[in-house]
Measured scan of single mutants.
Amino acid sequence: NPITQSQFVPLGEVLCCAISDMNTAQIVVTQESLLERLMKHYPGIAIPSEDILYTTLGTLIKERKIYHTGEGYFIVTP
């Protein structure tokens, strides 16, 4: 039996792509809307728990890849 190979993409990278897409579409990015986006637009991805999502978003903020305001999460533009 051949083994199907899937590509590994770090969660942080997927979140940045999803946040960027949602920002472009002017969709408010909350943790809930982000999870919905992942389920709908990234089939096959293991949906992270709320704790993992929260921690990963926190890491992306520390790395200055995203920022959070009262209006949601946004990509940091250079």
Rank of each mutant, 00 (worst) to 15 (best):
V9R: 14
G12F: 08
V29A: 11
I3V: 12
Y54E: 14
E36D: 12
S6F: 08
E32R: 11
P43T: 07
L15W: 02
T55M: 15
H41T: 09
L11H: 02
I75R: 12
L34C: 00
I3R: 08
Q31P: 15
L53V: 11
V76W: 13
L57R: 00
N1F: 06
T24F: 05
V76N: 11
T56Q: 05
E36K: 12
D21C: 03
D51P: 10
T55V: 09
I47K: 10
I52N: 04
I66R: 00
Q7T: 12
L35E: 04
S49M: 04
T24Q: 11
H68F: 13
S33N: 10
R64V: 03
Y42R: 10
T56D: 01
G44N: 05
T30C: 03
L53P: 00
Q7G: 10
D21E: 09
D21F: 05
T55D: 14
V76T: 08
R37Q: 06
H68S: 09
L34Y: 01
H41F: 09
G70W: 04
M22R: 00
H68C: 11
Y54L: 14
F74A: 11
T59P: 01
V76D: 09
Y73W: 06
I27P: 00
C17D: 15
R37G: 03
Q7Y: 15
S6L: 08
T24C: 14
Q5T: 15
E36G: 06
H68R: 11
R64D: 13
I45C: 08
V29M: 00
V14Y: 06
L11K: 01
Y73R: 01
N23T: 04
Q26V: 02
S6E: 13
I19P: 00
T4W: 08
G70T: 15
P2D: 04
H68V: 08
S6D: 15
G72C: 02
T69P: 03
V14T: 07
E32S: 09
Y54R: 15
P48M: 03
Q7P: 11
I19W: 00
L57G: 02
Y73T: 01
I27Y: 05
E50S: 10
A25Q: 12
T30G: 03
L38R: 02
G44R: 12
E71I: 04
E32Y: 04
T4A: 09
G12Q: 15
I66A: 02
L38A: 01
E36S: 09
T77V: 07
V76H: 12
P2C: 11
T69W: 02
L57V: 03
G44S: 12
R37E: 06
L53A: 01
I47Q: 10
T55G: 14
L35P: 02
R64T: 05
N1I: 06
S33Q: 02
T4I: 13
V76E: 10
D21I: 05
G70N: 09
K65W: 03
C16Q: 14
V76K: 11
L11P: 02
V9M: 12
I27W: 00
E36V: 06
Y54A: 15
T77S: 12
F8T: 07
V9E: 12
S33Y: 02
E71F: 07
L53I: 05
A46V: 12
G72Y: 01
G58I: 07
Y42W: 05
Y54M: 08
T55F: 12
G58S: 11
M39Y: 14
D21T: 06
G12V: 11
S49L: 03
T77W: 04
N1R: 04
P43C: 07
L38K: 00
I52D: 14
Y54D: 13
M22F: 00
S33R: 08
E50R: 15
E50V: 11
T4D: 06
L11R: 00
Y42A: 06
M39D: 13
P78L: 03
H41M: 09
L34W: 00
T24G: 09
S33G: 04
L15T: 03
S49T: 13
T24W: 06
G58C: 15
L38S: 00
P2Q: 14
Y42G: 05
N23Q: 03
M22A: 00
